[in-house]
Nucleic acid binder design. Sequence first.
DNA 1: CGCGCCGTTGATATTATTCAAGACCAGTGG
DNA 2: CCACTGGTCTTGAATAATATCAACGGCGCG
Lengths: 223, 223
Amino acid sequence: MRELCLPVGLDAAALKEVDRLVTDRRRLDKGAAVYRAGDPFSALYAIRLGSCKTAVLAEDGREQVAGYHMIGDIIGLDGIATERHACQAIVLEDTEVCVIPFTQLEGLARRFPSLQHNLHQFLSREIGRDQSMMLLLGNMRADERLAAFLLSLSDRYRQHGYSATEFVLRMTREEIGSYLGLKLETVSRLLSRFQSKGLLKVRGRELKLLDMPALKQLAGRGS
Amino acid sequence: MRELCLPVGLDAAALKEVDRLVTDRRRLDKGAAVYRAGDPFSALYAIRLGSCKTAVLAEDGREQVAGYHMIGDIIGLDGIATERHACQAIVLEDTEVCVIPFTQLEGLARRFPSLQHNLHQFLSREIGRDQSMMLLLGNMRADERLAAFLLSLSDRYRQHGYSATEFVLRMTREEIGSYLGLKLETVSRLLSRFQSKGLLKVRGRELKLLDMPALKQLAGRGS
DNA sequence: CGCGCCGTTGATATTATTCAAGACCAGTGG
DNA sequence: CCACTGGTCTTGAATAATATCAACGGCGCG
């Protein structure tokens, strides 16, 4: 757990307590749900192994992927407000999570200021991420969105010690499209176009980023 | 402050302490900033009077309105993660906010579990709101977005004891468009179309919702 | 009164979606 | 081993949705 859960700046005592708190683990087969919309909220979940998507559902069944999460990420933060999960978390491959009972975590947070602040930062970071996503969905064109998405994946793989330029997508074109507010055909076309422009090489879900500066410029950063 | 800031379920002792903490107030003229992107984070702000928008900025200057906030709302939550505000908050009319020093609030939260939980719910609620917004921006058509926006305004006015069907918009068409991922002309056209369909009556920024069920149907169910 | 923003509306252009057909690929059972 | 199947992915052509460009009207304010 140590590094996974609440990585930064925790004193040893707090860490020990968190370790003691987090005893329960859960293995999930590909496609299974960590939690579903409407489930009672009782815990946060830290991904120990594998990856998942979180998605909000419209009344008519339309699904919006709200985020992709990988090893070390903590999910379920949206459930605190109403005591029920507002979205569902579906694992994209066989995955293991550890369960962090929230009421007890709050108890620890009252005893350890560093843990408390860490928790607040986690919540706040999620807000920041969501707002960047709103910017992406509200203001960017399809190719800019896809470039930004690929770069964010790249960045996270790099942070976890994997290659930043060569990785395997864990999700379908349709799921990428749902995340980016695009249809699966649009995603497919864009990947082909990026490839023909020499920005990347794509073969199914295997991806190799060839021209990061160009991608960054597209995404709105590098320019 | 009592009701404004952290309304639900606070015991008297916690409330008294919060009152003591929140002494500083600030008056802002229309168009002024409560905080700007990049400002050091030190406090949350509760709107006592007036209203404001929060907006994230892209590198190229494009602006995405992330939320509209009115009396009783608390803003600035995005700054906790990085110790700097990630977005800017601009007041839409002459507005008064009270300043809630965050480090001290964390101190209180350690002493009062009810306050602590309240704070977590606040943060979580913001996450839920942002994710609904992602659903709106990613999956809904222009008319559905506008209907959803008008209904959410209506709801909030109702909650504050104002008319749910008749109110004055505090923002320009362009700002509405920025929030909804649309251009100002599209917003204008849609308002005209809604009017011609008898859904509402619009004159400048004065708005009267005439057919709430129809608006709800537009906002809720897809095409 | 006149100037600057704000808002409306029309014509046209662009972007992304929809519909449709077929290719690919892994797993399954004959 | 091979054909079959279901899900995924690619690509094209037609279509729909929204943006862009442009002109003008109106309102508020100095």
